[in-house]
């Protein structure tokens, strides 16, 4: 089989070409958590075009999400966060990822947020269809206020990539600047990205 030969060829060519061993450096220490982590995170979310919303407690969340859906004019709403009275689309019931098209707003849980860049770590494994975060017209992420880390070094200290699946950082809405460097929000994915910071 040609590909197995190619594999051996490539690996042996690389081994023959490899320079003398260079040690793997230590990683930088994570930066200190800002004095007000939530405020720093919210500032970063805003800087990347997202909309941070502070939620005093979990009980207030459903109302705020409903208000968001109303403001966006979202008729079809899918929520992977348990919110009473929110969401009329059951992701589990969708036969095929193509049925994600037409969802106006998706609400997904974020595991933690990163203060330096406004990114939210999202695990798509529990979702019936992993692409909901990008196919939905608008995205809302829910992060606990206690779950903000300083920077990406801190983030990767807590990220566990065991097992298959798609996991990702989402930092703000989909965007492009491919036409004359003019920033346009809503390229292919979410036209807006609201981040609810709870607690």
């Amino acid at each position: 089989m040609r590909s197995s030969t190619s594999r051996e060829d490539i690996l042996s060519a690389l081994r023959a070409a490899e320079p003398p061993a260079v040690p793997l450096p230590e990683l930088p220490e994570p930066g200190p958590l800002p004095a007000d982590p939530v405020a720093a995170f919210e500032l970063s979310v805003r800087a990347v075009g997202g909309e941070p919303v502070r939620v005093p407690d979990a009980a207030a969340l459903p109302g705020l999400v409903r208000a968001l859906a109303e403001r966006l004019g979202a008729r079809r709403v899918a929520s992977a966060v348990d919110l009473p009275g929110v969401g009329d689309v059951d992701l589990q019931a969708l036969p095929d990822p193509h049925a994600l098209e037409g969802i106006d707003l998706a609400i997904l849980p974020g595991l933690f947020g990163v203060a330096e860049n406004g990114a939210v770590w999202v695990d798509t494994r529990p979702l019936a269809h992993r692409g909901v975060f990008v196919v939905a017209q608008h995205l809302a992420l829910v992060v606990r206020a206690s779950e903000i880390v300083s920077d990406l070094h801190a983030a990767y200290e807590r990220i566990d990539l065991a097992g298959p699946g798609l996991r990702l950082f989402v930092s703000g809405p989909s965007k492009t600047a491919d036409i004359e460097q003019a920033l346009v929000i809503g390229a292919h994915g979410a036209r807006s990205c609201t981040v609810f910071v709870v607690g």
Partner: peptide
């Protein structure tokens, strides 16, 4: 930008 909007870690297929 501080980071790209999407940084996706694909492990295995859909």
């Amino acid at each position: 930008q501080p980071v790209t909007t999407y940084t996706s870690h694909f492990q295995g297929p859909i």
